[in-house]
Design a protein around this nucleic acid. Structure first.
Length: 594
RNA sequence: GGGGCCGUAGUUAAGUUGGUUAUAACGCUGGCCUGUCAAGCCAGAGGGCGCGGGUUCGAGUCCCGUCGGCCCCGCCA
């Protein structure tokens, strides 16, 4: 196809060519980003993994080479040998790292052609994600996506190096493991050798890492895939990656201290400064001030409780909720009085999504209170509300009266919604906060039983141990989450290392001794044999990278992600299998073969 | 399980109150062109509107169903 005067093997990458290479002969290999054919001279932007450089073909290159260059198309794979030269004055391209130089080709080898593309391989493409996922290999050629993968690699390396330097041992734990019905839905794997039995893919290596502590590893870590068969979101994939760690002979503060340094190191790799120690909030504080257990602390607009002010109010809706044990909370939207009725309707709809039955509002206008509820409130109530919220002219107050859970969630979400809409959340700010002292238990109204908020192996606070049997809902745990800009990026706890306490927790969760034995017998057994106090944490690598890269979805930091229906559009997994395969696994297909 | 948005050439979109041969840009194909980098100029090909029903004289346009993508609620110890 062209003269073979030299090998097609690359001598350097595009971006390695500098002005110091002037006059040198180089061989480049890569993809044709763009061809600009002027007839007598042809420019080709050659892209390799590291960047782009302009290659020039002119009649001096030889007739064959010109003809061959003329036939080049986007994404052809080529090798070019040529001489590095300065670009003529006035033809520099400041947009390119290599914009001052160019390579004048003396030979060209087409290593492979490329079929017409389903979409243009460029960062500034607005092609649908559906198509991008189907042709993921083309999508990944785009520099922005590739740089996400590169950063992911670097961050994972930093994690490994850091933890290794801190004395953590990376241990691989099984991917084929035991199903534990607690928690998320398991992905099941049928066992051929034990027909009718199933493995589960791990939701996390939780039990294994605890057992590694019992085994005396003292410090364990793993960059590990986890699987949960639940519905997907922008920040949730059925398989995702955790930086998982566990330590022995530690309390919460010990884990937090090491992990803060790790997080500093990870974010430094992305050019983001995270300065430890990070702020801390208890769960109760987080809920009461921000409404959510993953508070976005980049902006204020905190929740204010006005329950005591309106407890005896003429506004029966408020008074009744307080009398019934509920709360009345409000947020002040600075300058929010300019919002239209339609805007407020929208906010009401948002609040309704999270279960709020209504959204009361007050606009502070030059003429005083403008509000559907103003007439029900006394002057002293109004002034108390203004004082406690700090509301002044131009502001808007939004109230939700409901159970603590609903009111906090609705206003907490509303706070985020308004923060985004009014663009009052500062960008390029990274606010880390530890949320601690989570409640041990939640209550499942439908199943009429207690559930573990974190997981059943989380240790209660020592001082709350006596409340286990008397007031379980008041028991707090030694759990901690790391929250960044309103996103939970990690969470962990000090574990129970006392089999007696572990049994009490199982009893409370309504897990019988027999059941506990079936599900976690190996752990309960192991706990008897000299278990050190231990605890750990796991970070969501995908979420961390999404924040670092500004990605809207973790799909943009995962090489081969799945769609919302958990389908890989490239491989078309999941798919049907042969009946023969099923039979071998003692399974029967439920769907007819079409 | 539920709510919302979307689906028209290869791609991204426009398609008035349902009305002749469905538009545009980019891309693609061919030609011209020695300094472009959103190259330029000329010519050209390409879809029957995700799929299936229905209403109608007539359906991208209305109705029903279905498939797919995205966002969210539930779910995610």
């Amino acid at each position: 196809m062209s003269e073979k005067t030299s090998s097609w093997k690359r001598t350097c990458f595009s971006v390695e060519i500098t002005k110091e290479s002037l006059g040198k002969t180089v061989t480049l290999a890569g993809w044709v980003q763009k061809r600009r054919d002027h007839g007598g001279v042809i420019f080709v932007d050659l892209r390799d993994r590291k960047g782009i450089v302009q290659v020039v073909f002119n009649p001096d290159s030889g007739g064959d080479v010109m003809k061959c260059a003329h036939d080049l198309r986007s994404e052809y794979v080529i090798s070019v040998t040529g001489t590095v030269g300065l670009r003529p004055e006035g033809t520099l391209n400041p947009a390119l790292k290599t914009g001052e130089i160019e390579v004048t080709a003396s030979s060209l080898t087409v290593l492979n052609a490329c079929a017409p593309l389903p979409f243009v391989v460029e960062d500034d493409t607005d092609v649908s994600e559906e198509l991008r996922l189907k042709y993921r290999y083309l999508d990944l050629r785009r520099p922005s996506l590739r740089s996400n993968l590169v950063l992911r690699h670097r961050v994972a390396q930093v994690a490994r190096n850091f933890l290794s330097d801190e004395g953590f041992i990376e241990v691989e734990t099984p991917m084929l493991t035991k199903s534990t019905p607690e928690g998320a839905r398991d992905f099941l794997v049928p066992s051929r050798l034990n027909g009718g039995d199933f493995y589960a893919l791990p939701q996390s290596p939780q039990l294994f890492k605890q057992i590694l502590m019992i085994a005396g590893l003292e410090k364990y870590f793993q960059v590990v895939r986890c699987f949960r068969d639940e519905d997907l979101r922008a920040d949730r994939q059925p398989e995702f990656t955790q930086i998982d760690a566990e330590m022995s002979f530690v309390e919460s503060d010990d884990v937090i201290a090491v992990m803060e340094s790790l997080v500093e190191a990870l974010f430094k790799e992305a050019g983001i400064s995270a300065t430890a120690p990070f702020n801390r909030l208890t769960y109760d504080e987080a809920i009461s001030r921000f409404g959510l257990d993953a508070p976005d602390t980049r902006f204020a607009m905190e929740l204010v409780d006005v329950g005591s002010i309106v407890a005896g109010s003429g506004f029966k809706v408020f008074a009744a909720v307080v009398a019934g044990g509920g709360v009345v909370k409000t947020i002040r939207v600075p300058g929010g009085a300019k919002l239209s009725r339609k805007d407020i309707d929208e906010l009401t709809a948002v609040a309704a999504t999270y279960g709020a039955k209504g959204l009361a509002w007050v606009k502070f206008t030059p003429d005083g209170w403008q509000s559907p509820i103003a007439k029900f409130l006394s002057d002293s109530e109004k002034s108390a509300i203004a004082t406690v919220t700090g509301a002044g002219e131009g502001d808007l107050l939004l109230f939700v009266a409901d159970s603590l859970d609903v009111a906090a969630t609705a206003l907490g979400r509303l706070r985020l919604f308004i923060g985004k809409k009014l663009e009052i959340i500062p960008e390029d700010t990274f606010n880390f906060v530890w949320v601690t002292d989570f409640p041990m238990f939640g209550y499942d109204e439908t199943a009429k039983r207690f559930t573990a908020v974190h997981h059943p192996f989380t240790s209660p606070l020592d001082e709350d141990l006596p409340l286990l049997e008397t007031e379980p809902m008041k028991v707090r745990s030694k759990a901690y989450d790391l929250v960044l800009n309103g996103v939970e990026i990690g969470g962990g706890s000090i574990r129970i290392h006392d089999p007696g306490v572990q049994s009490r927790i199982f009893t409370l969760l309504g897990i019988s001794e027999e059941e506990a034995g079936q599900r976690f017998g190996f752990l309960l057994e192991a706990l008897k044999y000299g278990t050190p106090p231990h605890g750990g944490i796991a970070f969501g690598l995908d979420r961390i990278l999404a924040i670092m890269t500004g990605a809207e979805s973790i799909r943009d930091v995962i090489a081969f992600p799945k769609t919302q229906k958990a389908v890989c559009l490239m491989t078309e997994a999941p798919s049907r299998v042969d009946n023969a395969q099923l039979q071998e696994l003692s399974l029967r297909g439920l769907r007819k073969k079409d």
